[in-house]
């Protein structure tokens, strides 16, 4: 196994820099396709392979979330796969939730919450894997969604047609986005794994638009956290710089690939990441 303790190799060595860059490239690629931050790849890789302190690894992973989002979102927004209005609307709930979660952190047991959210995610992964798309069923009309003009349309390059969809159940979207924010403020997990399923299963949004919109949103929530870590000096440049660069290029590649990939493949990638996150969280809660 690759094992490069930080004490023996200075982090500024080109070899370590390149290795972190490559792993982060993969994280950015996967994260941009699935609409998540890629912390599930970055944190274990940095702590286990490179012996980075957990605090610095988490700080680097929050920078990675910002990089995934920012790197991919320019493409997703331009191609209208990311629903900008919906994203901005739900961001209100996410950033407020994240602030609430950070305030609550001193008062609640993170352990129990890890198990709770882990269970919730496992259940969601199972639901998503069955491919019961909301679009297949009758969707209730949403006058609020009409008024807020959040319905979307984009050109799907894999299906080679324009995909138009109507958004519904904004209340659910708002509630879960808020919860996703709380989870990210409280537990440090990215909110993407919670937002994508609710958008896809309940709100009538095609899976590509879900992951792209989630991707668009996560950068804003993470930016506040990243800025705080940055000011506290937890962002170690020798770690964060290769992570940020690798993730940015990975996310750019992912965003260019995504529209040409079939929606079902995106869904499977997301379900796998969701299941892994669920397992990781349950483990954190139990041990």
């Amino acid at each position: 196994m690759l094992w490069i303790p930080m004490e023996q190799v200075p982090m500024d060595s080109p070899l370590t820099f390149t290795l972190i860059l490559l792993i982060s490239y993969a994280a950015g690629l996967l994260g941009s396709l699935a609409g998540v931050g890629g912390g599930i790849v970055v944190v274990p890789a940095l702590t286990l392979l490179f012996g980075v302190e957990i605090k610095q690894a988490i700080a680097a992973s929050i920078v990675a979330v910002v990089a995934t989002s920012t790197g991919a979102a320019s493409t997703y927004v331009r191609d209208r796969v990311a629903n900008m209005r919906l994203g901005m609307l739900l961001e209100v709930a996410t950033v407020t939730g994240a602030l609430g979660g950070a305030l609550l952190a001193a008062w609640v047991s993170a352990r129990a919450l890890f198990v709770l959210f882990g269970g919730l995610m496992a259940y969601t992964a199972w639901n998503m894997s069955r491919n019961k798309r909301a679009a297949d069923r009758d969707l209730p009309p949403s006058p609020l969604a009409d008024r807020l003009k959040v319905h979307g349309a984009y050109y799907d390059q894999a299906a080679q047609r324009e995909v138009a969809y109507r958004v519904t159940r904004l209340g659910w979207g708002f509630t879960v986005s808020g919860l996703a924010g709380v989870a990210s403020g409280l537990l440090g997990i990215g909110g993407g794994v919670l937002k994508v399923p609710v958008m896809n299963l309940l709100m009538g949004i095609p899976v590509k638009a879900c992951t792209a919109t989630s991707n668009f949103m996560i950068g804003v929530t993470a930016a506040a956290g990243a800025a705080v870590y940055f000011m506290r000096g937890d962002v170690r440049l020798a770690v964060a710089a290769p992570v940020a660069l690798g993730v940015l290029f990975g996310a750019k590649t992912g965003a260019r690939m995504m529209n040409r990939i079939h929606g079902n493949v995106i869904r499977i990638i997301f379900v796998i990441i969701l299941a892994l996150t669920a397992a990781q969280m349950c483990w954190k809660g139990w041990r």
Binding site: P14, V63, T70, M88, G219, A223, F230, L237, A241
Partner: peptide, 28 residues
């Protein structure tokens, strides 16, 4: 890598990371 970590290179690197973190906020 070329000249070793001095205050200029670290400053440029820090500015790059800070700009990255600020970009989503600038987008809003």
């Amino acid at each position: 890598f070329i000249a070793g970590a001095d205050s200029l290179s670290v400053g440029v690197l820090t500015a790059g990371l800070a700009l990255l973190i600020a970009t989503p906020v600038l987008r809003v």
